[in-house]
Design a protein around this nucleic acid. Structure first.
Length: 844
DNA sequence: TTTGGTGTGGTCTGGA
DNA sequence: TCCAGACCACACC
């Protein structure tokens, strides 16, 4: 852990020294102010730890609030009498690895809930947060220590959990204004901190930032340009070669560029600095170049220099006071599954979410302009536009992140870089603190490995559909199936097979010797129920606002945060890295789920309603106008019989739907269908149409064919497909529509099977284009000889396409998938009796 | 140290 | 040359 005190001291800059007077305490002044908290950490103040909150006052002043009243602690579960254990601990002389003395500040005996029991345990206070893990390591093997808890929760997070202070909310601060060396308007040493019930967000200054670089040899990058766009209207481009552009200033060197950039950020004092992939790129390069030129990156409130913190696979650039939010991180970790675009590049994501595209600009062109010293106005325009898009994207996404902050008591920096597991974990830890429950320990890496080794638990049930075109389909689904099962059956690690209701429990798990307590409410169901009810309330509140209004959008993002965390809970119970892991709980959830779906299908049968498909929590029933009444009674009957929060909902009525046969084996294909609503909307799942690893041509053709077939216009679909094939054959098809997207998931050398996307990437590597795991490559199958992979080229290198491949492996299978469900054969599509058809379609 | 299981289908590879 | 099975990516919920 870093030492805040020494770091900040060595990092003083001139500006600080000239602005602030050294005689600090003499000017102390009593102050009361409202304060909007945006960030937090801790520092050492006169040898004692102090929580440090960052934010703005209601007068718009940038402020730091210090709270020295909070003390670091962890828990020890004693084997013997707590009083005796306490005295033994206090009498110990503790030394750390470097033989330095560590002292325990104090020990309280507290009553806490651990699992299903209440225990008197020791709350051990230390003088310094960094002493906690040291004390824990020294005492863990001692004979009177049964267990230790909550030693790995960072001090400032501990504070936010315990006080339930929600970052991005208002506080009332009373204290003394003190002088400090930090780059903010005021620093307050707090005497009291009060949470305010004001849901409003002040006007935040959000500064988007983007750089352009050129290769500087040996894998390094040189910054040639940087741009800013802020929510206050600030626009600026910095470079050091001629550029005639109104927002651009031209300096003399990369070093000057970096110095100017630091000055701008300090002057602007944004609440948030936003980037798109700034952790891995912009700030990484900036730090490297700043070090090279010996420029100090004194950013934010400058309470510590720019450092990187490991966050999963990547390192995150920390700026305190002007928290750095890397939008890409949040999109990658949380929003990825909801994003439809082929890649997670800024261009695609911005277009999908806010309808803005990047300016098209060729990197080669940029390098050339730079090397030849030509006017860079085009580059400047491009660079600034990127910052502007990043800013707009931030204005769209930050409310999602802030909603997560409120729900999980995490600072935006952490919330924006959290995985699902961390979001659920944080929410649970915050709730545990409120409910006097001890947080279970994080599993050791061996435990995680063990949990991963054992066989996976049985999951959901999927009904096998009957292939063909169906009419009059009504779709029903269970509202929040897994969360509602957990709440309604009290599924929680500590209610599992409790000793108090062995044979009496109503919560017997179908097919397992498991049951859950009837008498005592479990921790997980309690907090999950809060989430579900909370979400319902937010949705109700939404209805009081006009759709599309600012209030409506913010509430929508709030309910989305509730939903996200609620839905991730089931996975968290079965997640090997979880603090609340309980295999039997996860098994029980899916067992109940399967049982409810089966029962509901059986029940539908009694109402003469035929189930044609269903997946996990949904049912597709044939309901025509004659059966409408029966369907209504059925729904009511089911809901009357469901326990607790569980509910079956009518999702929608569709006039037709297609299910197809499996390609290999027999029967209908699951997870693939197309539905046409009464209003003409098409709902497609699973088919090539919704997959990125199919060409746009094949996907578009399939969609057209689907619509026609669902509208009983089979013949038109056949004609259309033939036309597409004909066009391909003539060589008229544009290459863009033939591009296939596919992700490289591991280092190229690790592939056992070299598929087309890997082959294309390998060929590109020889030309100096690197692909890392995570890269989505775009390739085209070109003319020539050999396997498909042999002929796969990145689209930027492809000059032609292989019509045979695109006919036989793209358009035909995609169209036929649908058409064969209505009896059209491949021959009907190909052999129109024309001579051409006989020899130009060689089957591989 | 990146919530879970279920499922389809393309391409390659190696043995018959 | 054919085909089963492995590998791989991506979707659904």
């Amino acid at each position: 852990m870093y030492n805040a005190k020494t770091k900040t001291q060595t990092n003083l800059n001139l500006r600080d020294k000239t602005v602030f007077m050294p005689e600090a305490k003499a000017t102390a002044k009593q102050i009361t102010t409202n304060f909007f908290i945006t960030d937090a950490d801790y520092t050492m103040l006169d040898g004692a730890p102090s929580i440090r909150l960052y934010g703005r006052t209601d007068k718009g002043k940038s402020a730091i609030v210090l709270d020295p009243s909070f003390e670091p602690y962890f828990y020890i579960v004693p084997k013997e009498d707590p009083e005796k254990a306490k005295n033994r601990l206090l009498s110990l002389k503790l030394k750390d690895e470097s033989l330095k003395d560590i002292s325990i500040r104090n020990i309280d005996i507290v009553k806490k809930t651990i699992g299903a029991q209440e225990n008197n345990i020791l709350q051990v206070f230390a003088n310094n947060p960094s002493d906690i893990p040291k004390i824990k390591d020294i005492v863990k093997h001692m004979d009177f220590v049964a267990d230790k808890h909550e030693f790995d929760i960072p001090f400032f997070r501990r504070y936010l959990f315990d006080k339930d202070i929600r970052p991005m909310s208002w506080l009332r601060i009373e204290g003394n204004k003190i002088d400090s060396k930090f780059n903010c308007d005021i620093t307050i040493k707090a005497d009291s901190i009060l949470k305010l019930d004001n849901p409003s967000t002040p006007d935040l200054n959000i500064l988007a930032f983007d750089i352009e670089t050129i290769p500087a040899g040996n894998g390094k990058q040189q910054i040639i340009m940087a741009s800013f766009a802020s929510s206050t209207g600030f626009r600026k481009v910095i470079t050091y070669q001629p550029a005639k552009h109104k927002d651009t200033i031209v300096l003399r060197s990369e070093k000057e560029l970096i110095e100017e950039l630091v000055k701008d950020i300090q002057k602007e004092k944004p609440d948030f600095i936003v980037t798109y992939n700034g952790d891995a790129f912009d700030f990484t390069v900036l730090k490297e170049r700043a070090d090279l030129h010996k420029v100090q990156l004194n950013l934010g409130f400058n309470t510590r220099p720019l450092v990187f913190q490991r966050k999963g696979m990547t390192s995150a650039a920390i700026i305190k006071g002007s928290a750095h939010i890397d939008l890409y991180q949040f999109i990658f970790r949380i929003m990825r599954t909801t994003i439809k675009s082929e890649t997670l590049k800024l261009d695609n994501v911005a277009e999908e979410l806010i309808g803005e595209k990047k300016i098209k600009f060729d990197f080669e062109e940029m390098f050339r302009l730079w090397r030849e010293g030509k006017d860079l106005s085009k580059v400047a325009k491009y660079n600034l536009h990127d910052s502007i898009i990043t800013l707009k994207l931030a204005q769209y996404i930050l409310p999602n992140i802030f909603a997560m902050c409120h729900l999980t008591d995490q600072i935006p920096f952490d919330a924006s870089r959290s995985t699902y597991g961390q979001l659920v974990g944080s929410f649970a830890m915050k709730k545990a603190a409120q409910m006097n429950i001890v947080v279970p320990n994080r599993p050791a890496s061996e435990t995680i490995a063990d949990r991963k080794r054992i066989a996976a638990i049985e999951g959901a049930f999927v009904v096998e559909p009957e292939p063909g075109l169906h009419k009059d389909i009504a779709v029903f689904d269970f509202k929040s199936l897994y969360p509602s099962i957990i709440v309604s059956h009290n599924i929680s690690p500590e209610t599992f097979n409790c000793s108090c209701c062995k044979s009496t429990s109503k919560n017997k798990v179908p097919g397992f010797p498991y049951y859950f307590c009837d008498k005592k409410r479990g921790f997980v169901p309690r907090i999950l129920e809060e989430l579900l009810i909370g979400r319902t309330e937010v949705k109700k509140e939404m209805k009081t606002f006009e759709k599309g209004s600012q209030d409506y959008i913010l509430l929508d993002k709030k309910q989305y945060a509730f939903k996200t965390v609620a839905n991730a809970f089931y996975g968290y119970l079965g997640f090997a890295g979880s603090r609340w892991y309980k295999r039997e709980c996860a098994e029980s959830v899916t067992a109940f789920g399967r049982s409810y779906i089966h029962k509901t299908i059986d029940e539908a049968k009694k109402y003469n309603l035929k189930t044609i498909y269903g997946d996990t929590d949904s049912l597709f029933l044939i309901v025509d106008s004659k059966e409408e009444k029966a369907a209504k009674t059925f729904l009511k009957h089911i809901n009357d019989s469901l326990p607790g929060m569980m509910e079956l909902e009518f999702e929608g009525q569709f006039k037709s739907g297609i299910f197809t046969a499996k390609k290999s084996g027999t029967g209908g294909a699951k997870k693939r269908y197309a539905l046409l609503s009464e209003t003409g909307e098409l709902k497609v799942r699973g088919f090539e149409r919704v997959r990125r690893d199919w060409s746009a041509l094949a996907k578009d053709t399939q969609e057209r064919v689907m619509r026609l077939v669902l509208d009983d216009k089979k013949d038109e679909a056949v004609t259309y497909t033939k036309k597409v094939i004909d066009n391909l054959k003539k060589g008229n098809q544009d290459l863009e529509s033939l591009t296939i997207y596919s992700q490289i998931t591991m280092p190229l050398s690790k592939y056992v099977l070299v598929g087309p996307h890997v082959a294309a990437a390998k060929k590109a590597e020889e030309k100096g284009i690197k692909t890392e795991p995570g890269t989505v490559v775009q390739y085209i199958i070109t003319k020539g000889t050999g396997s498909i992979s042999d002929r796969a080229l990145l689209s930027q290198f492809a000059r032609d396409y292989d019509p045979d491949y695109y006919i036989n492996n793209q358009v035909l299978p995609a169209a036929l998938r649908i058409l064969s469900a209505v009896g059209v054969t491949e021959d009907q599509l190909l052999n129109k009796g024309t001579q051409k058809g006989l020899f130009s379609f060689s089957r591989k």
